[in-house]
Simulated scan of single mutants.
Amino acid sequence: MTDHTLQLLVDRAAIADTLHRYAAGLDHGDADLLTSALTEDATVDLTPATGKIGLDFPVLTPRETVVGVLIPAVGPLDTSHVISNIRTTVDGDTANARAYATAQHFPPGDGPKPDRTRQALMMNRYDADLVRDGETWRIRRLTIDSAWFSGDPKILTGE
């Protein structure tokens, strides 16, 4: 195995970890974990996904705004984001990652109750530009588009 191949494997694992930190930060309402996945000038654009389900949601930038908006909006919900099918292209200290994210949302406290059926299930496509920050990869730009949606979109607005 060459040094280049080994570095590529390490980078791909670290990039996957970055996407997982982003999702886990949302699922656990953990601002520090979410922050660790983003550059200071990060931009998160959910408008392709939210627009398809009738929600008016702004593009979020920088990191302080991303965390300040997403943690109060998603953190209290009973959510689970599953990141899969990660494909990466690495070019030195920059990379692009594309992945699927299945995200299940229930109102706070309703997730574990089998008699609760009000939910919002999304299959999203992530397109992320990342940069290497020392040993850590961070998302500089994330665009989220929805492949399909099922349920009540008002759950995502706290209604």
Rank of each mutant, 00 (worst) to 15 (best):
P72Y: 11
L55Q: 10
V44W: 04
H81F: 00
D91W: 04
T47M: 07
D93A: 15
H81K: 00
E40M: 03
I86K: 02
A73W: 09
P62T: 09
D41G: 10
V66D: 09
T94C: 04
R63N: 10
T50K: 01
E40Q: 10
I53G: 09
E40W: 10
A31I: 06
V59A: 12
L46Y: 15
G54A: 10
V90E: 09
L34F: 13
F57Y: 13
T47Q: 05
V90P: 13
V44L: 14
V69N: 10
T65S: 15
T61H: 10
T61M: 12
T50G: 05
V74M: 11
T61Q: 08
A73C: 13
I71K: 06
V44T: 09
D56Y: 08
P72W: 11
G68E: 06
H81Q: 01
T79N: 04
L77M: 12
L33R: 08
T39M: 07
T61G: 14
S84H: 07
T43A: 06
S36T: 02
L46N: 10
D32H: 09
L60P: 00
V69S: 09
R63I: 04
L33F: 07
K52H: 14
D45M: 02
I83N: 04
G68S: 08
T65D: 15
V67K: 01
A73T: 15
G68T: 05
S36E: 12
P58K: 08
R87N: 12
R87P: 11
L33I: 01
K52G: 12
V69P: 05
N85G: 13
P62H: 03
L60T: 07
A37K: 00
I71M: 03
G75H: 02
G75M: 06
E40N: 04
V59Y: 09
T50Y: 14
T47N: 05
S36P: 12
D93H: 09
I83K: 02
S36N: 11
A31Q: 04
I86G: 01
I86M: 00
P72D: 13
P72L: 07
N85D: 12
T61F: 06
P76Y: 11
P48F: 05
A42Y: 03
T43M: 13
T43D: 13
N85P: 06
T39S: 10
T89D: 14
G54D: 12
L77T: 06
L34I: 15
P76M: 14
A37G: 12
T43E: 15
D45W: 00
I53L: 09
T39K: 00
H81S: 02
E40V: 11
D93K: 10
D45E: 12
L46K: 00
T65N: 12
S80I: 14
D91M: 03
D56T: 15
I53P: 01
L34Q: 07
F57N: 07
P62D: 10
R63C: 07
H81P: 04
G54S: 02
V66Y: 10
T65R: 15
I71F: 02
D78W: 01
A49E: 05
F57H: 09
A31F: 00
S80E: 14
E64F: 08
T47C: 04
V66L: 04
L77V: 08
I86S: 02
